[in-house]
């Protein structure tokens, strides 16, 4: 079996006095979507932040594309091919939509063909091209946030609850965009509360609880097993049905 693109083994993270991640083992195979599920406070966002170097792992090892990245600095990880879409619609509100995307391209202007492709995924961004990102709606900000992560090809995209608080039509747009992105063989690690959204995209799944991964396997298997869903996801499943 080939080495996964991203792997965490026995990762612990402390934030201040709190012991948040308590030995996370996770493997994200290359070229597909892995969903990271679990109730609020299970440690999903902390896992993404730790991978991205925004919080430091206090123990354990993180490997990405064959390299140990446990102690790597955030900007180096971004340059090394990992993009991060935080859950808080992380646009730069004083900059225009265009400037937000140019900023993310880092080395000069973004590739025109790729930009065109992104704007077909999120047509709303074309309409507001020269508008300050701060005045966009929540859904448009989320689109810009995702667009910024993919403005250049990346090996791995960490996405934190992209559907949180969005209207159904925007969720559908987001789903179509991720499905299209998946076709390009980009690896996505998706944190999601919306099980149906996660189910329609993910190939593999990991479920977290209390700072650990308590289940990992094929998404199809979890989707077909009502009992397992109920046991692992409990209320968080019901609340989204």
């Amino acid at each position: 079996m080939p080495e996964p693109l991203l792997s965490l083994s026995g990762v612990h993270t402390h934030v201040g006095p709190y012991h948040i991640l308590q030995g996370v083992d996770l493997a994200v195979p290359g070229g597909g979507v892995t969903a990271l599920l679990g109730r609020n406070g299970a440690g999903k966002t902390s896992t993404l932040r730790t991978v991205m170097g925004l919080w430091r792992a206090s123990a354990g090892a993180i490997r990405f594309a064959g390299l140990e990245i446990t102690k790597a600095a955030t900007p180096d990880l971004a340059r090394g091919g990992i993009a991060y879409v935080p859950e808080t619609m992380s646009v730069f509100s004083d900059l225009t939509v265009r400037e937000n995307l140019v900023l993310a391209a880092r080395a000069g202007p973004p590739d025109a063909a790729r930009l065109d492709w992104i704007l077909t995924l999120f047509p709303a961004l074309r309409t507001f091209w020269s508008v300050a990102a701060g005045v966009l709606s929540g859904g448009q900000k989320q689109m810009l946030s995702v667009a910024r992560a993919i403005v250049e090809p990346r090996q791995l995209i960490l996405v934190d609850e992209p559907t949180k608080g969005l209207a159904p039509a925007v969720v559908a747009n987001m789903l179509a965009a991720f499905a299209e992105l998946k076709r390009t063989e980009t690896t996505i690690l998706l944190v999601e509360q919306n099980f149906h959204f996660a189910r329609s995209l993910a190939d593999t799944v990991a479920v977290m609880d209390n700072g650990r991964v308590v289940h990992a396997g094929r998404m199809a298997a979890l989707a077909a097993d009502d009992g397992l869903q109920r046991r692992l996801l409990g209320l968080s499943l019901d609340s989204h049905q």
Binding site: A73, R79, D94, L103, R106
Partner: peptide
């Protein structure tokens, strides 16, 4: 300039600027 845009991004949120690859 592009440099100025990065400064504005840092002013708004330095973690985000780092997460897209800038050494703040």
């Amino acid at each position: 300039s592009p440099f100025g845009r990065v400064l504005q991004a840092i002013r708004e949120n330095d973690f985000r600027a780092e997460a897209i690859g800038y050494r703040t």
